[in-house]
């Protein structure tokens, strides 16, 4: 194989990969809320799907479906994973980590309010900087904070970034209520995960 032939073959592979592995997968990812590269075959790794319930990751009610009244009004956030209607906990991918918090609906920005139910909002719990869990809470600011590098998100306003190195807001997850528990109403509003990883 000549060097020139080698390059031509490589370029063809690259183009094909871009279309199938990159382009289509990316398009599918956007459509389903699936992060590029995520595997969708295993239900425990699938991103949250409409109809999924939200289940506590920690605390005295760990493993149970979250009811709006379970959450303290005004924060802090609770960590959760989605669970399929069949009961499959989608904890197979860290990218499925969620944060959930309850606020006075009057405090929510219009777009946020439209995605909330009973004042409860849900977002990806994966920081958009380096993919660390957004598991800390600022009592002073009433905002969620990434423990790795301090990126601070306003959950009342679309989880927009108010401090820190993250490039943009967390992906929001629209909610509804069914049988008194929180249920996923739609897919993630945007790409989930950090930069560079």
């Amino acid at each position: 194989m000549t060097e020139r032939d080698g390059c031509r073959v490589w370029n063809m592979k690259w183009r094909r990969r871009r279309m199938v592995g990159g382009g289509l997968a990316l398009a599918a990812g956007l459509a389903t809320g699936l992060a590029p590269g995520a595997r969708a075959e295993d239900p425990s790794e699938m991103p949250p799907q409409p109809g999924d319930r939200l289940v506590f990751l920690t605390g005295p009610k760990k493993g149970t479906a979250i009811k709006p009244d379970d959450l303290p009004l005004g924060g802090p956030q609770a960590q959760a994973y989605p669970a399929s209607p069949e009961g499959v906990l989608r904890e197979g991918s860290r990218l499925n980590l969620l944060i959930v918090a309850r606020f006075d609906p009057a405090q929510l920005a219009p777009e946020t309010l439209a995605r909330a139910t009973d004042g409860v909002v849900a977002y990806s719990g994966v920081c958009t900087h380096q993919a660390c869990p957004v598991n800390a809470w600022s009592d002073e600011q009433k905002m969620a904070v990434c423990s790795c590098h301090g990126s601070t998100y306003d959950l009342r306003d679309g989880a927009k970034l108010v401090f820190g190195p993250a490039p943009h807001a967390l992906a929001a997850l629209p909610l509804k209520r069914a049988d008194d528990v929180l249920v996923v109403a739609d897919k993630f509003t945007r790409h989930v995960g950090g930069e560079m990883m």
Partner: peptide
Amino acid sequence: VPGQWWTGVAVPD
């Protein structure tokens, strides 16, 4: 929580 920050104090504090 395995793999998560667990120091007893949050970064904002």
